[in-house]
Design a protein around this nucleic acid. Structure first.
Lengths: 229, 229
DNA sequence: AACATAAGGATCGTTCTACGATCTGACAAT
DNA sequence: ATTGTCAGATCGTAGAACGATCCTTATGTT
């Protein structure tokens, strides 16, 4: 009986952080994050403590904590004595973001031979999700699916910290997507290209996958830079 | 006269963010960050809002903002209704940190041919600094110099965001260094190895530099993992 | 007319007080 | 020995207050 009790305790320990205990500030941040990536608050817009605080029914202190969280994710910029603003990305920001993506994603593919089964499953699932969204013409969700695919690419490296970093990079990228007026034309073509990349990864051809990914990123970057000039 | 006025304005624009306009919370965070990396607050220690707030003469709200900043840097961990604690790193954390370092630093070297003159200068300067510190037996500063060298390695990639990420990784690593009881034996040998790496980079031999760097990281990781078990 | 200055209002930065919620540890009951 | 209960400490959040800073507008100067 002792064994099973210990085993059960061990299983519970794994669920511990799943016990979603979140503070009000974090929940407020989650709401604002969604509104920002939806484009409800446009880049450059100021988020007044007073206005938003009363609208959400939270105190200024709590709201300020939420602002801090989002500033660290680079979704907001904080100017002393002026307030927080939705980040407005420049062409240089886009270039920098893609520098990071190229370096990290390509290295992740190169370093993962053979790829872990879980990471492969995540890649396939993200691709399938993007496909479903496209079939239903939910173009925003196609973008989400594509981003999740590249999140899974980074997951090939098997590092929590890299995953976390990529989450941030992709969240910032979301801000740039808002500038594209035709979401379908922008997102749809990349589904097929991701499928090609996955095919090469599955075939064990890391070099080929890396080349394809590099082209992919170059094209996306060029499109976004053009839209941000 | 117009030209020089514009030129002057442009120069000033570069100094703008140097004009240290920082809030109290950020200054408090800077102080705590230093104390933590110094080891004054040991890993696992709880930082009471009340105690530290009165000690530093700031209000709880301000202090909480500082805590948030440091939590995002992973120097502190925040537990709901329990307070903040100095992060205690596990052997898995060390492994993860070195996974990131290996991927990012090696890719930065491989991608930077030829390296930019500024990045090379930063590498040389960091190495010289570590050498000076060693000559004066300031072992803690030797560690700082070595870390700055690897910060400069990442700077080869030319990405602000990667630089920022590396800053965080190295700050976390500082926490693990505290576990090494003999700082000289730990830090000193790496000066020479960094010098070898720089030599190969200067010679344009990115592949060789990458191999050396990989060995370097493997050895450091092994030492730290052993100390964290 | 162009520029410098001053006044006013809005908003932020920070502090203080307050109270409910939650954790911890100790003691009592089973 | 395990469980239940309670008190103390600390955190989470709210709200009011006031000085500091920024922006805008009005006023004055050259």
């Amino acid at each position: 009986m002792i064994d099973s009790a210990e085993a059960a305790a061990e299983r519970l320990a794994m669920d511990r952080d799943l016990l979603g205990r979140t503070s009000t500030a974090e929940r407020v941040a989650a709401i604002l994050r969604e509104r920002i990536t939806e484009g409800v608050f446009e880049p450059g817009a100021r988020l007044s403590e007073e206005t938003i605080g009363t609208a959400l029914g939270v105190s200024r202190n709590t709201l300020r904590e939420a602002f801090r969280l989002l500033s660290h994710e680079r979704l907001l910029v904080h100017q002393l004595n002026r307030g927080v603003f939705v980040r407005r990305l420049t062409a240089e920001d886009v270039v920098d973001l893609y520098r990071v993506r190229r370096l990290v994603e390509c290295a992740a593919i190169r370093g993962a031979v053979p790829p872990s089964p879980q990471a492969l499953a995540a890649l396939r699932e993200a691709l399938a999700e993007a496909g479903r969204a496209a079939a239903q013409e939910r173009w925003h969700d196609v973008g989400t699916g594509n981003m999740r695919f590249h999140q899974a690419v980074v997951a090939l490296a098997g590092s929590e910290r890299l995953d976390e970093m990529m989450r941030q990079v992709l969240a910032e990228l979301r801000l740039t997507f808002l500038a594209m007026k035709n979401p379908r034309a922008f997102h749809e073509p990349y589904i097929g290209r991701n499928r090609e990349i996955l095919k090469l990864i599955e075939a064990g051809d890391a070099g080929g996958a890396e080349r394809l990914l590099d082209d992919y990123l170059a094209d996306a970057e060029a499109q976004l830079v053009r839209a941000h000039s």
